[in-house]
Amino acid sequence: MNNGTTKSPAVSAKRVADAVPWNKHVHQRRNASDWVADILIWALIILIVLVVLYPLWFVVIASISDQHLVSNGSVTVWPKGLTFAGYVRVFQDSRIWTGYRNTIIYSVLGTILNLVVTLPAAFALARVEWKPRRVILFLFTFTMYFAGGLVPNYLLYKQLGLLDNWLVFILPGAVSVWNLIIARSFFETSIPEDLHDAAQIDGLNYFGYFMKIVIPLSSAIIAVIGLYYFVGHWNDYFTGLIYIRESGLQPLQNVLRDILLANQTNQLGTGSGGQNALQNQQIADQIKYGVIMVSTLPLLVIYPFLQKYFDKGVMIGAVKG
């Protein structure tokens, strides 16, 4: 597999930013159309940021506002009628905690297995002197575009005893070819070949070179594909839907689906006698906002810390698609 004409965007963003003509330290005369363009660009950017941010912000404020005020539209920018009733009910719900526990177990173990399997394979496939790599890589990449499909998968898992078995969350997705290609491209382009020569002279074999030199130099790519894998596990709804019947094994997303979309908020206390339908609906909504926050917050909190690695990871993956 080769990809025609894309070149590695090796120039750092910083350098370009410094040299781009309209940056302020380069004094150049600006004409009227530049000002118009400026205003247009800023207006669009602000609009985009608002469109992306507002729904998320609304969930935050709605989760701690009086639902009566939310549903009649008076909650717009700041929370009103501050209440934490929704969160209290969410934290009382055992289903959510079971789901949470399961998801954490599946995500952590799954991501560890992902990295342990993917990184060495990516390293091996990045060694130019290893001739079989082309065939192996082709066989791997082919699976990205051609797959057996849902039913053969299902029957295979059934034969392997993976139905209603927690291993189904971990084993079948152990290798994502996409992540493997990203890691391979990183090893190929970002680890200088001189290091390998030096390691050989020092008597390191492939295992030693990989463990002692390559891995310590690859924290960026490990963070990126680790995060991809982790988010994949965390947000996985499909596996629980298709291969798991037992509710004790269901991960968070499947519990969320029951609460958020099938409206099964009952365990959370709606429908307890004497309340009218409107109130029930409002309590259910409050719970829904709380559930969205509780399930989504962990990922939104960790990701800005890893953001500096993203550009690199995505870029590498793209260059060597």
Partner: peptide
Amino acid sequence: FISTVVIVA
């Protein structure tokens, strides 16, 4: 980073 379930909700 938001899951499909939450988006649809």
